[in-house]
Computed example of a mutant assay.
Amino acid sequence: MAACALASARMRDGAPTNGDGGGGSGHGYGYGQENVLVGAGMMPPAQMFFAAVEEALPSPRDLLQCRDFDYLRGFALLALASLQDARIGVTQMYIGHYFTMLAVNQWHEANWLGGLDSTEREERRRLYWSFYTLDVYSSIVWDDCIHFQESHAEVEYPTGRNCNETESAPLDSTHWVVEWDYFTDLYRILEHNLSRLRTRSSRFYLMAGESVSTPALNMSSQDRVNELYMALPRIFKQLRPCTGDPAKDIYGFQAANIQASMALLKMVALSLETDHDAERKCSLQVCS
Rank of each mutant, 00 (worst) to 15 (best):
H175F: 04
Q33L: 11
G41Y: 03
I140F: 13
Q238M: 07
D144P: 00
S118F: 12
A56P: 01
S25K: 03
G14N: 03
W112G: 05
L77H: 07
E273R: 13
P45R: 10
T174E: 08
A5F: 05
G19W: 01
N162C: 11
Y229A: 13
D275L: 08
R161W: 06
P233W: 03
F50S: 02
Q65V: 06
W142E: 02
Y187M: 04
K281V: 03
S271R: 12
P158N: 05
R87G: 00
T159S: 12
A247S: 14
L228K: 08
G28V: 06
D143F: 11
G114D: 14
Y187C: 00
L72R: 08
A216H: 14
E55A: 11
D172K: 14
N218H: 08
C145E: 14
V286D: 04
L37R: 13
R67W: 06
A231G: 10
N218P: 00
L72W: 06
F131M: 13
L264R: 15
S201P: 00
Q92A: 10
Q47A: 02
D70C: 04
G14D: 02
E54L: 08
V53K: 03
D249P: 02
V212Q: 14
G209K: 06
P16Q: 03
R10M: 08
V141I: 15
D70E: 11
N111L: 02
S25W: 05
S138R: 05
M93C: 04
M48Q: 10
Y182D: 00
C287N: 11
T243I: 07
V104F: 07
L206P: 03
L113M: 13
P44C: 01
M43Q: 13
P246D: 10
I140G: 06
S118R: 15
Q259M: 11
L127M: 04
C163L: 12
E123L: 12
H97F: 11
Q47Y: 09
T166Y: 14
G26N: 02
E165T: 15
R161C: 08
D172W: 06
S202Q: 09
Y29S: 05
T184C: 10
I146N: 01
